[in-house]
């Protein structure tokens, strides 16, 4: 069963002459375990598409199915529950809660999903992204790369089926970006978690097994690599 399926999805904003078609009639199937990238120039609809795949926004037309379940008509509470349980998010600006420590940021994700044993799971998730010993630091005491690792731990701590990453390397230098990508790739392989990115970054595209090119809100090209892309550093 696909993790995510988009059927005839369009999203418009505004009305009348000010009406903007952000995405138009998109049909897309994302299978479990994919490492997929949405690529395109600014305004091509990458973020809008991610929003709908991540159940942050609803399409104006068409339908989005997560693990075979249509999301249209779900209540705000049901959507919040679906996101907390099945979808993790990684943001360009990390978006950690500044008043919480690294471990508390990760633990918060467990508790928002209503899970128990949050502290232990948060520590384990931080260990998995290589941040053992930094659990008690607040975001402003961590480097950009470390903050993004915390964000990855936060996204993965509940073992979601799908992780949405919006330009996750855009605020990182190339070395940190490569490390973060490598980490996500490892987690994808280890846990089979599906990753969907939006990016302008060629390095991210190199890591992807599937690249969806967007232009003016439509899918211009959908490429799938036959073999896994080379690891960061291997082909560079």
């Amino acid at each position: 069963m696909p993790i995510c399926e988009l059927r005839g999805v369009s999203r418009t904003y505004g009305s009348g002459p000010a009406k903007v078609h952000a995405v138009r009639e998109i049909d897309l199937v994302i299978e479990a375990g994919e490492f997929t990238v949405f690529v395109g120039p600014s305004g091509s609809g990458k973020t809008t598409l991610l929003n709908m795949v991540g159940c942050l926004d609803q399409p104006s037309e068409g339908e989005v199915l997560i693990e075979g379940r249509p999301t249209a008509g779900l209540s705000d509470r049901a959507l919040a529950h679906l996101r907390a349980e099945r979808i993790g998010f990684i943001f360009q600006a990390f978006n950690l809660i500044p008043v919480l420590t690294a471990v508390e940021n990760v633990e918060l994700a467990v508790q928002l999903g209503g899970g128990g044993d949050g502290r232990a799971r948060a520590r384990q998730a931080l260990a998995e992204v290589g941040l053992t010993g930094l659990e008690g630091r607040r975001p402003n005491q961590l480097s950009g790369g470390q903050q993004q690792r915390v964000a990855i731990a936060r996204a993965l701590v509940r073992k979601p089926a799908l992780v949405i990453a919006d330009e996750p390397t855009a605020n990182l230098d190339s070395a940190n970006g490569a490390q973060v990508l490598e980490l996500m790739r490892e987690l994808n392989e280890k846990h089979g978690t599906t990753f969907i990115f939006s990016t302008h970054d060629a390095m991210v595209m190199e890591h992807a097994r599937r690249t969806v090119f967007l232009h003016d809100g439509r899918i211009a090209r959908d490429e799938v690599r036959a073999a896994p892309a080379p690891r960061a550093g291997e082909g560079r």
């Binding site: 991540g54 942050l56 705000d76 509470r77 919040a80 529950h81 996101r83 907390a84 349980e85 998010f89 943001f91 978006n95 809660i97 918060l108 994700a109 928002l112 999903g113 936060r154």
Partner: peptide
């Protein structure tokens, strides 16, 4: 606003 958006994305309900 964005921080609340993040929490909402992570599963915080309106009541929360």
């Amino acid at each position: 606003t964005r921080e609340v958006g993040v929490l909402r994305a992570m599963g915080l309900t309106r009541a929360g």
